[in-house]
Design a protein around this nucleic acid. Structure first.
Lengths: 135, 135
DNA sequence: ATCTAGTTTATAATTGTTCTAAAGTGAAAA
DNA sequence: TTTTCACTTTAGAACAATTATAAACTAGAT
């Protein structure tokens, strides 16, 4: 993804393309593979990479803004930290608790044959499959 | 589950049946249906129910001890709070984000037909299906 | 160039959880 | 029984992740 597209992406979702947002967006979206992170890990990586220090609060703000705009998804992971994913399409995850690492699973790689119907007046929003790994 | 069984349950897992543990265990395990809770919600319910106040730290200690003994499981739920479940068998969950409520799904009510193989030297520990509900 | 609503920032506040160390207590041994 | 002591409980401090606050800053319209 090119820088011009980053600016479009931000503008089209009503986000003023500030220096910080562009920097974070480039870091997150200018890559081939999907990227999983926590705010803590993102902060560390950004600090290492850039000259200008971005405040932690800004990283929180930005990640939430990107999520609200549909550019990031939040992953179902047990534990205290919140994991985000640059892959916003419907998909699933492996989780390696040894390394606290997430790995995407394409939606087509899991087929669910039988599923219970939603309770009393509720509907199914989405189905997430989470595969815990061991060594 | 009767009180005598509660005592057995505690003793057999190497947990000294103290007043607090017995009280919490009775509250959690002497019921028909499985019970989902966070430490916060459990604390509120216990405070409402009992004469004697149990310290929050004790509730944390006890819940962790019960989990370590295999009497409770921790549920995969996104967010900051940790959810526990008195159902320790292999099963799945509906999650109603409106009410922040979990509903058990029996393992037999979901059949997965196709599943990817685990990456590089890893094995699959378990598969958790999480069905998000909407209205 | 000026203005202003939206943004960033440092810091405080909040929330969920764990740690600490002192006081209390089951239950085994005397 | 009483004594003893490792295991528990407890209040409060400490910690970690996140959110709120309010002052300074800035993108972009006027």
């Amino acid at each position: 993804m090119k820088k011009i597209d980053i600016l479009k992406k931000l503008r089209s979702s009503g986000l003023r393309p500030t220096k910080q947002r562009v920097e974070i967006a480039k870091f997150l979206f200018e890559r081939e593979k999907t990227f999983h992170f926590t705010v803590e890990s993102l902060n560390k990586l950004l600090t290492k990479k850039s000259i200008s220090k971005i405040a932690l609060a800004t990283i929180y703000n930005t990640v939430h803004a990107f999520k609200a705009a549909g550019h990031l998804s939040e992953v179902e992971v047990r534990g205290n930290k919140t994991y985000f994913d640059t892959n916003v399409s419907n998909h699933h995850h492996f989780y390696d608790s040894e390394t606290a690492e997430l790995i995407d699973i394409d939606a087509n790689d899991i087929i669910i044959q039988k599923i219970p119907k939603a309770p009393n007046g509720k509907k199914i929003k989405n189905v997430e499959v989470f595969i815990n790994l061991k060594n």
